[in-house]
């Protein structure tokens, strides 16, 4: 008897506390920048596609909802020919972002992606790619890698010596 009264009293007190629910969608909630929402593909500081088609996000994904095909431009730069995420399967675990060695794939604090038709939950590269660098600024994988691409010859990457002259006899 006493405990019932106590519960009613506590519930009554809540009437005078501040609301934590909001009038969504009229009013939007503020999500922290590291919130794991919609997935995007970002660009490097030179505005080029960051994704190098390494398949690591795809293999990390526990529900296998990422598929892609890597290809190369004529100068040897790798990029995805297609890149598809089936958001109707995605569980927003963020493993892909963690696996990505280039900061290409990022989860952003946007959760408004409901659709009437499930087919519309399938996003292709065009739907995923954004124009900016997302959360991580300044990183350009190809500057660090040893691979030569257009505009970066062998030995001109970050922290690299010029290519060895193999005909040199200097000890």
């Amino acid at each position: 008897m006493l405990s019932s009264l106590r519960s009613m009293w506590l519930t009554f007190l809540h009437l005078f506390q501040k609301n934590i629910t909001i009038e969504y969608p009229e009013e939007k909630s503020v999500l922290p920048p590291r919130y794991r929402g919609r997935i995007v593909l970002t660009r490097d500081p030179d505005k080029e596609e960051r994704c190098v088609g390494c398949y690591l996000c795809a293999v990390a994904c526990p529900v296998d909802c990422i598929s892609l095909q890597a290809t190369e431009d004529e100068h040897g730069r790798r990029y995805p020919e297609f890149f598809r995420i089936n958001f109707s399967r995605c569980i927003f675990c963020g493993y892909c972002e963690e696996a990505c060695p280039t900061y290409a794939i990022q989860l952003i604090p946007d959760v408004e992606m409901s659709e009437y038709d499930r087919q519309n939950m399938v996003y292709e590269k065009e739907d995923l790619t954004i124009d900016g660098q997302g959360k991580y600024h300044g990183y350009n994988f190809y500057r660090e890698a040893g691979l030569a691409i257009k505009g970066k010859e062998k030995g001109s990457g970050h922290n690299e010596e010029p290519p060895v002259d193999i005909k040199s006899l200097i000890p």
Partner: peptide
């Protein structure tokens, strides 16, 4: 093996 729920989703 990866991409099972996405490779034919298009």
């Amino acid at each position: 093996y990866s991409g099972r729920t996405s490779m034919f989703a298009n």
